[in-house]
C-alpha cells in the first residue's frame, strides 16, 4: 500500500494520523530509512497489531507515536496535535499524560518496589499523596497485584513484572497504550495472561492499544493487524477483524 493511505476504522475520528512519515538515519555515506513515507490513520479506541520482519520499521513507528523519536520528514498528529511542533519539554510533558508505554523487558526500576514503580509517573503530575495512593492501588488491583505491592522487581516473576509495567502504563490514565513486544520475554502461559490483561484494558477502559509483535497469537487478538516491510505498509497483509 505504498504511497497510499491506510485508513483506520472508517466511521471513527482518527486519533493518530501519519502523513508521509519518514525516519532516516545516516551511517557515514549510507542512509537507512526504517520508515519511508508512511500514511496511516488509527481511530481512537482501536487495538492494532504492528507486524513485520526485523528492520521493517514497526518499532520506529511505535517510538514516533510515543514521542520518543522525531520524524525526519512528514507529519504525525495525535489528537489533532502535531508532535513535530512540540519542544522537547512539551513533548515529554505530553508523553507523560497521553502515552502509556510497555517494554519487552518491562524496564522496571530495580531499587523501587512494585508500588513505587507504579507511583513514579504520577510524581510528574503534582498530585497529593492521597490521590497518588488511590490511583496506584486502583492500577495494581486492575492487574491483580495488590498483594505484591511491597515486592521489588527481582522478587517477581517475568509475568508479574510485566503486569507491574502495565499498571505503571495505565496509572496516569493515558489515551494511548503502546506495547513493544510485550510478551517477547515471557513463557506461553504468562504471555497469554498478559495479553488477556491488555485486551481487557482495551475493552473496559477504551484505550487505544498499539502492539508491536512477531507473535501471530498476539496479533490475532487485535482488531487490526498492519504489516510493515522496509518502512512501508504492505496492503495485502492488512486484515480487519
Amino acid at each position: 500500500m505504498n504511497g497510499t493511505t491506510s485508513t483506520g476504522e472508517d466511521n471513527a475520528t482518527p486519533l493518530i494520523e501519519c502523513r508521509d512519515l519518514t525516519r532516516e538515519f545516516r551511517r557515514g555515506e549510507q542512509v537507512i530509512r526504517p520508515l519511508d513515507g508512511l500514511d496511516l490513520e488509527l481511530a481512537a479506541g482501536s487495538f492494532v497489531a504492528l507486524m513485520g520482519p526485523s528492520g521493517s520499521g514497526k518499532s520506529t513507528l511505535l517510538n514516533l507515536i510515543a514521542g520518543i523519536d522525531r520524524p525526519t520528514r512528514g507529519t504525525l498528529r495525535i489528537g489533532g496535535r502535531d508532535l513535530g511542533r512540540l519542544s522537547g519539554r512539551d513533548l515529554a510533558d505530553w508523553r507523560s499524560r497521553q502515552i502509556g508505554y510497555i517494554f519487552q523487558l518491562y524496564n522496571l526500576v530495580p531499587v523501587l518496589t512494585a508500588y513505587e514503580n507504579v507511583e513514579l509517573p504520577l510524581l510528574l503530575h503534582g498530585l497529593s499523596r492521597g490521590e497518588r495512593h488511590r490511583r496506584v492501588s486502583e492500577a495494581l488491583a486492575r492487574v491483580g497485584l495488590v498483594d505484591r505491592h511491597r515486592h521489588f522487581p527481582r522478587q517477581l516473576s517475568g509475568g508479574q513484572e510485566q503486569r507491574v509495567a502495565i499498571a505503571r502504563a495505565i496509572v496516569t490514565d493515558p489515551a494511548i497504550l503502546l506495547a513493544d513486544e510485550p510478551t517477547g520475554d515471557l513463557d506461553h502461559d504468562s504471555a497469554a495472561a498478559v495479553m488477556d490483561l491488555l485486551t481487557s484494558l482495551h475493552r473496559e477502559l477504551g484505550k487505544t492499544l498499539v502492539v508491536v509483535t512477531h507473535d501471530p497469537a498476539v496479533a490475532e487478538r487485535a482488531q487490526r493487524t498492519l504489516h510493515l516491510e522496509k518502512g512501508r505498509l504492505v496492503a495485502a497483509a492488512e486484515i480487519t477483524r
Partner: peptide, 13 residues
C-alpha cells in the same frame, strides 16, 4: 543508561 531512558519515556526531564 536504559533505566535513565525509561525515566525519560515516562516523562521525567
Amino acid at each position: 543508561i536504559r533505566e535513565f531512558a525509561t525515566l525519560q519515556v515516562l516523562g521525567f526531564p
